[in-house]
Design a binder for these strands. Structure first.
Lengths: 227, 227
DNA sequence: TCGGCGTCTCGAACGTCGTTCTAGTCTCGA
DNA sequence: TCGAGACTAGAACGACGTTCGAGACGCCGA
């Protein structure tokens, strides 16, 4: 038994039975091993979850280097990232832990360096990096959750919304919970807003509201009176 | 004992001890009641979680109606929303369930109607609504998670990153995990990208990439040949 | 060849959790 | 007075995460 096998089998178990199905006992059974054996290779269940999460982030293919402009690069990465999370919908519910595995870091590295080479500088460099990542995470979380909710609850919610159309007029009238349009298209459009918003700053078309930028590395704050 | 007290006490318990501290037994103790009593008022623990989540979303103050332009309205709502989630960091980890409480719906209603009155139409109306919401959720999730991680783990992660600066050159050089700048500012900047991106579409300054818009309600597709 | 020491395996158990069962108390209208 | 609901609660069940101690396996120096 190896950590790789544990990670792979944990992913398979999660794919089949979602978060509630991941049990140390069940995982040990799948590995044809005793429960204590599993605990010899892994300290806690949280560690298994971290392994499973980083495992699936390894599925996110990085765009080829130097082929795309920054917008396409970001768009490809975000799309791949989201697709991976939707392929493993349990991942969204488990994000309440720091993601520090090598695969996750590699994807963040790509995103950050792409935006850096696009010409972004602090404070917008890290703001843009987080903006894209957070948009992807939030979208995947919302959508996975909705997808994992049984159809009966979904239908009940929709009826509840329409029954209270005086309280929620806009939501009811526009069928907020209905499956209107493709969810993929909605994600793409939202991603476009984010990318266009970043591009406007990058190209200097918008006032760089900025905020308190951290002092540049290796550079000192200008002495009083030089400005 | 009432559902209101249960919700309030559950929030208090979660605030003090995070997700792991919420136990039906502990909650019953805080309510000066037996365990079975609690189960008479509430069917499952999930129900308690739903109550607690909707309870804190009631803290999100809606912007005054008709005072702000749509950008300020969205910005105020998003800022309040995020502040509430950061005030109760456990909320981020519990979002893997459908949010259908009245308080959550009321906030979504405000967001949706604000964007509608700004002039947005499908497919951009729902795309923009989800974009703002998902950005807020993703940001709050990322930040709460990082905040709940003990300082020792955070330090270890930073050192790990710098030790492998050949693997993650950009992240290490820019101190990706360091607390650079204010997190509030970073959130504000990211929100600006999203809002500006939406505004560009709304004002027609960007090609409305669109995608497959659902047919308008009550309107039929134009018959063949009329275009 | 032997003995010993890491590596790996595992059955059994502990404590805690969510949940249920059953029996009990209280209040109030008929 | 009495009976039916509203409400309380002790005790238990099964499943979970985790730990303990004992054993099996292979390799290496003596």
């Amino acid at each position: 038994m190896s950590r790789e096998r544990i990670a792979a089998e944990a992913v398979a178990l999660l794919d089949e039975e979602q978060v509630g199905g991941l049990t140390m006992r069940r995982l040990a059974d799948r590995l044809d091993a005793g429960l204590a054996t599993l605990y010899w290779h892994v300290a806690t269940k949280d560690e298994v979850v971290d392994l499973a999460l980083d495992e699936i982030f390894g599925e996110v293919r990085l765009p080829a280097a130097g082929v795309h402009d920054w917008q396409d690069g970001v768009r490809i990465l975000a799309t791949e990232w989201r697709a991976t999370m939707l392929r493993h919908p349990w991942s969204a519910a488990l994000l309440g832990r720091p993601l520090l595995g090598p695969n996750v870091l590699a994807r963040t590295e790509y995103l950050h360096s792409t935006l850096l080479h696009a010409g972004l500088r602090e404070p917008h460099l890290s703001a843009a990096t987080h903006a894209v990542a957070n948009y992807v995470i939030g979208s995947a979380l919302t959508q996975s959750t909705w997808r994992l909710t049984d159809a009966s609850v979904r239908r009940a919610a929709q009826q509840h919304l329409h029954a209270q159309r005086d309280v929620y007029p806009t939501l009811a009238d526009h069928g907020h919970l209905d499956d209107k349009g493709s969810e993929d298209t909605r994600f793409d459009n939202g991603l476009t807003y984010v990318i266009n918003g970043i591009e406007a700053i990058r190209a200097g078309r918008e006032p760089a509201a900025g905020g308190d930028a951290p002092p540049e590395r290796g550079r000192r704050r200008a002495p009083r009176g030089t400005r």
